[in-house]
């Protein structure tokens, strides 16, 4: 079977770092800037960047609705930092439009401005005993999780990694480390989604 083609939303942010990390984890990666790019991919990563910028560009170039439609139809999506904010249901204390793909409330820059950005050894039980070298940059935290959402990691009592069905969110940046475990976890989500689609189509 050919490796999954994973798109990285390339309107702005650390696109190249995610693409390289996906390839190291065994996937193929492609930048997604247009509708045609989006149609080709099996899954999508929304990378780190500035959420106000990217939300405006998604809207401006007509990508918001097609992404929502594909994720609702089962396409796996992973948002890191900015990407998790863009995917969230709501942003605490702000009137910021989002895609509403995962039932969480995030608070932007919750860990502080750049001077508070940090490297943290983070316990993520789903990835094994070894702590994950998590890099937080002007990072958001998750203030509320809906009933369908699984909280996968916390830092100082604040949610920083969540999953709900085919949507994954992290406050931190696994693409800036050499540790491939979160990327591998996302690829396993794509495996499951493809198996499901495969079953559905063979049943039909």
């Amino acid at each position: 079977m050919q490796a999954h083609l994973v798109g990285v939303l390339a309107l702005q942010g650390d696109v190249a770092e995610h693409a390289a990390a996906l390839e190291r984890a065994g996937a193929r990666a492609a930048a997604v800037k247009t509708l045609a790019d989006l149609e080709r991919v099996d899954a999508l990563v929304i990378p780190g960047g500035e959420s106000t910028t990217v939300v405006r560009l998604l809207d401006r170039f007509g990508l918001a609705e097609p992404i929502v439609a594909r994720v609702k139809a089962g396409m796996p999506l992973w948002g890191t930092c900015m990407g998790m904010i863009v995917a969230a249901r709501e942003v605490a204390g702000m009137e910021q439009p989002t895609l509403g793909l995962i039932d969480i409330t995030v608070r932007r820059n919750a860990f502080g401005r750049q001077n508070e950005s940090a490297e943290v050894a983070l316990a993520i039980p789903a990835l094994g005993e070894q702590p994950f070298p998590a890099i937080f940059i002007r990072a958001p935290w998750i203030e509320r999780v809906g009933p369908s959402v699984e909280l996968l990691a916390e830092r100082d009592g604040h949610g920083v990694m969540v999953r709900s069905g085919n949507v994954l969110g992290t406050s931190f940046h696994p693409e800036l480390t050499g540790d491939p475990r979160v990327h591998a976890y996302f690829l396993s989500m794509i495996d499951k989604a493809s198996a499901h689609v495969g079953k559905a189509s063979s049943a039909a």
Partner: peptide
């Protein structure tokens, strides 16, 4: 364990600004 002001987080913020104005 938590470390602030490392080269990785300093360079990291610039990585998040890429492709932007």
């Amino acid at each position: 364990m938590e470390e602030k002001g490392t080269l990785t987080v300093k360079r990291g913020l610039a990585q998040m600004l890429k492709g932007g104005v």
